[in-house]
Design a protein around this nucleic acid. Structure first.
Lengths: 129, 129
DNA sequence: GACATTGTCGCAGAGTATGATACAAATACA
DNA sequence: TGTATTTGTATCATACTCTGCGACAATGTC
């Protein structure tokens, strides 16, 4: 369900955060789902438990997870938010998208490639329709 | 011609390398074109000359530039080496886009809003067509 | 109440990014 | 020729981040 690359330049905890966010965004991790204990996930991935704990904590700070000592970590955020994001959050999200597109442009990716990636991502998260 | 972000998480020299690669790939920097001295570019961007020197060196090692002490740095190739780190770069960019879309999905942005943002960004960077 | 399970904290080692400073090579000019 | 200027390079220091080891604290189980 989660794969990480120790050889990658991006930090392990960032890979974990991105992977877990992806699972939540795609609905594969729903509200009240329990996550594996830090020690177990760390053992499965062959990394240190602190690295997993750090990823859990970042997502907890982001309001997606809730960790309780002795009990475990569960998903508390549901993707559906009827009211939608607030103005400043919306601005933050738009800035993040703009930065990602800037990155692609700087690297010299052609328009068609970017459009293909975008289509794939939207289909993954919002459905094929 | 080159813009960098000191606030970004990606190292400055990586931003420089990516930007210069983009200029070369786009033909805005052609063979035998001279690059600004490390001190001048560093002053223009408000960074240390070593950071610029590092970017020049990486591109020199990649076979795109040639630096000579006392003379300057020039472009010597207009095509990337086929075996370059392009796959990694591409993967990194795709991960960045995926993370940004995850963020939007988790925040509850509807598909239409995201598509509108995407269209605006693509138009901004790759033209209206 | 004793033990196991689970998350959290403090510290250390390694690596990297950036910068300040000094050095070396090529050129310009008197 | 010889001195100053321009340019890239090397060295060292500082700060920061990542990752891991070990210990601690809270919750649940029996």
């Amino acid at each position: 369900m989660l794969t990480i690359s120790l050889a990658s330049a991006v930090p392990i905890h960032d890979q974990l955060v991105a992977g877990l966010r992806g699972l939540i965004a795609a609905g594969k991790l729903a509200k009240d789902d329990e996550l594996p204990p830090v020690r177990q996930l760390a053992a499965d991935l062959g990394i240190n438990l602190n690295t997993v704990a750090r990823a859990y904590r970042e997502l907890t700070d982001a309001g997606l997870l809730a960790s309780v000592r002795g009990r475990g970590t569960v998903v508390i955020a549901t993707v559906e938010r009827p009211s939608g994001p607030k103005a400043d959050e919306r601005k933050r999200i738009e800035a993040g998208l703009a930065a990602a597109f800037n990155d692609a442009k700087i690297a010299g990716l052609p328009r068609e490639v970017v459009e293909a990636i975008v289509n794939r991502q939207i289909a993954r998260l919002w459905g094929e329709a």
